[in-house]
Amino acid sequence: MNQDRRTFLKKSSLTLAGSGLYIALFPMISGASAKQQLYAYIVDTEKCIGCGKCAAACKKENKVPDGYYRTWVERYSIMKDGEVIVDSPKGAVDGFKPVKMEKGKIEKSFFVPKLCNHCASPNCVQVCPVGATYVTKEGFVLVDEKHCVGCSYCVQACPYGARYVDHFGSGVADKCTWCYHRVTKGLQPACVNICPSDARLFGRIDDPKSSVHSILKEKRLQILKPETGNNPMVFYVGLDKEVR
């Protein structure tokens, strides 16, 4: 084979290989986004009464295994000397009991409901090796329980402790789904529905009639751990500096 033909073949095969690789990798590189965040969840810590009915309702609705929680409520007790005590007895499924040294020693106290933040850029989805957890086109972060291998990498990745793997039960990753099975039927998530004090709200961001719409437009809102860059979609009203 003469030199020109050889060079031509070399160049053209390299070009073909390169383009082939680009086409194959395109979906990964392009980040073509049909990703939208249609829903928002609001937690108003100034309204939460710590009854724990949300945690209990979630357990019943989603058959959450013992010892694990899709949502829970934390109680912060900030003492006069600055010490901060946080507790969440059984995730607040049975509510809270008065703290033994309640009166006098506590400067400030409040409840903070927690749940999966259904982040817009979730790093739990980023680290799933098999594509079992993902973001739906409406912005819900779900787990495909038929495909998950139970490696627990997503559990390690979640900065909020929202995920778990029940090793003696299903063996797959699980977490709050914002009651996807209820929202798709026009209902509210179980925790939002049951909350007696409007501390938990959920709705479409673009719907002027949704309960979240006015709050999103008017109130000063915070998110948990903004430094992670995960862009959580659960917005807090009245998030104290002590809350992680």
């Binding site: 010892g67 829970w72 934390e74 946080v86 059984k90 927690k114 390690q156 402790g161 778990y164 793997v165």
Partner: peptide
């Protein structure tokens, strides 16, 4: 205090 799901080491 630990988040409830963190008590168990995965």
């Amino acid at each position: 205090f630990l988040f409830p799901n963190e008590v168990h080491v995965h």
